[in-house]
């Protein structure tokens, strides 16, 4: 894993700001504020994983109940991530938002979620076994 320094933080926050800019523009340009839901989805996405990681002991291979809880968390995270992609498409299909707003909010949402993921990857606490 590459060393995470000040440049990483600056780059990540820049990408996060661009993502938020795209999402807010996609709302404000057309005066339809539904794409803000994408931000909420992506912020909520890591939470099931996080909760289930605390509920289960990942080193426990013999009892499979711990793995089941972990799987539930992963399933919910996968659900929420795909929800962030699917929600603007659903809204655009019914002409609630326009197609450019859909594209902008999808790209912005992906940037926001990518920032969250890479932040978690770079600044994960060193786990000692």
């Amino acid at each position: 894993m590459p060393a995470a320094g000040l440049k990483t933080i600056i780059a990540l926050s820049f990408v996060l700001a661009v993502g938020f800019l795209l999402v807010i523009l996609s709302c404000a340009l057309w005066k339809a504020y539904y794409p803000l839901l994408v931000v909420a989805t992506y912020v909520l996405a890591p939470i099931p994983n996080w909760i289930c990681n605390h509920c289960a002991n990942p080193d426990d291979f013999v009892e499979s109940s711990g793995a089941a809880v972990l799987d539930l968390g992963r399933f919910c995270t996968g659900f929420l991530v795909m929800m962030g992609l699917a929600l603007p498409v659903v809204l655009a299909n019914s002409a609630i938002i326009t197609v450019p707003a859909m594209i902008m909010s999808v790209i912005g949402g992906l940037l926001i979620y990518g920032t969250i993921i890479s932040f978690a990857m770079f600044f994960q606490e060193e786990q000692d076994f």
Binding site: D71, R74, F75, C76, T77, G78, F79, L80, V81, M82, M83, A86, L87, V89, V90, L91, N93, S94, I96
Partner: peptide, 22 residues
């Protein structure tokens, strides 16, 4: 695989929701 299963289930739900909204 587990992440993909969640993603596919979400896709199924939103496909149906899309038809309902439309």
């Amino acid at each position: 695989g587990v992440y993909a299963a969640g993603a596919f289930f979400s896709l199924a739900f939103y496909t149906l929701l899309d038809s309902a909204v439309w």
